[in-house]
């Protein structure tokens, strides 16, 4: 971990902090009733998206889940456009037609948050196939949850990626719950990563509260994929700070969140580690906090002011031509 340079460390912190601030703020704003529909918040899981996406560039693609804000931010989707999208505004990433569950920016290689559990892995087989054809070393990364780890689409994709030897990485974010059902009950084996063996690929388990652990595991998998070494399944064990969706009373959970916030906060861990080792100073990190808070304030203010989609937009953008 000591090889990560100062600028990269600051970027990683900024990315995680942006995701956290974004999600905490959406949580607050959602409670006011101004945000329509469902939102599924990623707070607590920041180290996963960040640890993986820090390795990615313009050649690379990711597919996400319904809990997708963190992946979007980590892949470089514009934060203000994301916030406007969540508010259903015409200035949003998807012009108000997608919402929280479908934020995407294909120009950034972000194939969309996905309302369908297990929707993303097949798509990543395709982007990885395209990258392989292009021959520029691109990779595709499929983020999915413990719920999707039981979906046929995911299992089929693991097999296909192996059979086609695709430059793909499958990141199972096991936050312990698929909706309100515990993964310790719904996943029949001990670890999701154990399933990798069945598809002839390496399976790795990482501590999702530790940015450095995720970063290292993802780095290895991604560089293997870039070299033509085929896919990897990484299971990131972590916890979400909020419910399945906003409004979830989480009566199925028993004090885990308070414990996690206190002891398993990836941001706090990051800060402790980099300051203890004199890699970054509190002052540097505090400055990032201020910068990020200002960005999120501006994003919310602009989203609230932004125009809503016009009635004429109702049936446009269905086809390129029709």
């Amino acid at each position: 971990m000591s090889e990560i340079d100062e600028i990269t460390l600051l970027d990683a912190y900024r990315m995680m902090r942006t995701i956290r601030a974004f999600e905490e703020r959406v949580h607050e704003e959602f409670a006011t009733g101004e945000i329509p529909g469902f939102v599924h918040l990623y707070a607590g899981e920041e180290a996963s998206a960040t640890g993986v996406c820090m390795h990615l560039d313009a050649r690379d693609t990711i597919a996400s889940t319904h809990r997708g804000h963190g992946h979007c931010i980590a892949k470089g989707v514009d934060v203000k456009a994301m916030m406007a999208e969540i508010y259903g505004r015409g200035t949003g990433s998807c012009r108000g037609k997608g919402g929280s569950m479908h934020i995407a920016d294909l120009t950034k290689g972000m194939l969309g948050a996905n309302g369908i559990v297990g929707g993303g892995p097949p798509l990543i087989c395709g982007t990885a196939l395209a990258a392989k054809h292009e021959g520029a070393g691109g990779v595709g990364v499929a983020f999915f949850g413990d719920g999707a780890s039981n979906q046929g689409t995911t299992l089929e994709s693991l097999n296909l990626a192996s059979v086609w030897n695709l430059p793909a990485v499958f990141v199972a974010e096991n936050n312990g719950y698929a909706e309100a059902t515990s993964s310790s009950w719904s996943v029949a084996c001990d670890n999701i990563a154990d399933r990798a063996a069945a598809f002839g690929m390496p399976g790795v388990i990482v501590d999702g509260f530790d940015f450095f652990a995720v970063h290292e595991a993802a780095g290895e998998a991604i560089s293997r994929a870039r070299r033509g070494g085929g896919p990897t399944l990484i299971e990131v064990k972590l916890t979400r700070y909020f419910g399945h969706f906003e409004g979830d009373q989480q009566t199925y959970r028993a004090g885990e969140v308070a414990h996690a916030r206190e002891n398993l906060d990836c941001l706090l861990r990051f800060r402790t580690r980099v300051t203890e080792r004199d890699l970054l100073t509190d002052k540097q990190l505090d400055a990032v906090d201020v910068e990020v808070d200002a960005l999120i304030d501006a994003a919310v203010a602009e989203a609230k002011r932004a125009p809503r989609p016009a009635p004429g937009d109702l049936a446009t953008d269905v086809y390129v031509t029709y």
């Binding site: 693609t61 597919a63 294909l106 194939l111 892995p121 097949p122 798509l123 990543i124 087989c125 395709g126 982007t127 990885a128 196939l129 395209a130 990258a131 054809h133 292009e134 595709g140 689409t153 994709s157 296909l160």
Partner: peptide, 9 residues
Amino acid sequence: GAAIGAATR
């Protein structure tokens, strides 16, 4: 799904 993903690229 792979065909669809490849098409987006």
